[in-house]
């Protein structure tokens, strides 16, 4: 009977496993995408909530300049997109989508900051495959993951969550989505949150 229960559990686990592993992969990255498999959906404890003042930070960008949140306060809304790591499947198919909707961000007076815990050279090589990105790509490499940690999205293995923060011009957090790391957040949900900023 124990063996039977084990077999049933095995069937259930393997059966449903098939349904959760699909992801798109652009040939732009050739065979250079490392597949970490299915990870624990989230692995961090929240430190911020909607309505909180966003902690300031300053990180180096791909263009050699440091970018801080403070420089946009009073001027632009800000979306921060934390993605777990360069050269991984879902992350590689997330920012290229944001890259073709600059008009939507502009229409909502919003700038985008893409942040990972990778080093600048790794980010440079990775994002080069995406074409020319219009938004800030920032490295939270050193002190490792310090900004991700401030935002409560640093996972126990040192990568960040796949998380979106929408921050209004006053620096107040208006939306947080700490998404299942294995899945890409739907664009329409983010766009709806941008629309709410105008109201």
């Amino acid at each position: 009977m124990k063996r039977l229960i084990f077999l049933i559990l095995l069937v259930l686990v393997t059966g449903f496993g098939f349904a959760t592993t699909a992801f798109g992969r652009s040939e732009a990255f050739k065979g250079n995408i490392y597949n970490p498999g299915v990870l624990k959906p989230t692995d961090s404890a929240p430190k911020l909530k909607v309505g909180d003042k966003t902690p300031d930070f300053s990180l180096p960008g791909l263009d050699g300049e440091r970018v801080s949140l403070q420089q946009y306060i009073g001027k632009k809304n800000v979306v921060i997109s934390f993605v777990p790591a360069a050269w991984t499947p879902v992350c590689s198919d997330q920012w290229p989508g944001y890259n073709i909707v600059r008009d939507i961000f502009d229409a909502h007076e919003t700038i985008l900051m893409g942040i990972t815990v990778d080093s600048i050279p790794s980010l440079y090589a990775w994002t080069n495959q995406m074409g020319t990105l219009w938004f800030h790509v920032l490295s939270d490499f050193w002190p490792h993951g310090a900004v991700a940690d401030k935002f409560g999205v640093l996972r126990s293995d040192g990568i960040s969550e796949r998380a979106l923060f929408v921050i209004d011009k006053r620096g107040i957090i208006r939306y947080i989505d700490v998404h299942d790391i294995n899945k890409r957040p739907p664009l329409e949900v983010l766009v709806k949150e941008l629309e709410k900023l105008q109201k």
Binding site: S26, D93, P96, G131, R184
Partner: peptide
């Protein structure tokens, strides 16, 4: 294709 795929975009 995928909207998120840079190769598809190009």
């Amino acid at each position: 294709f995928s909207m998120y795929c840079p190769y598809c975009q190009r």
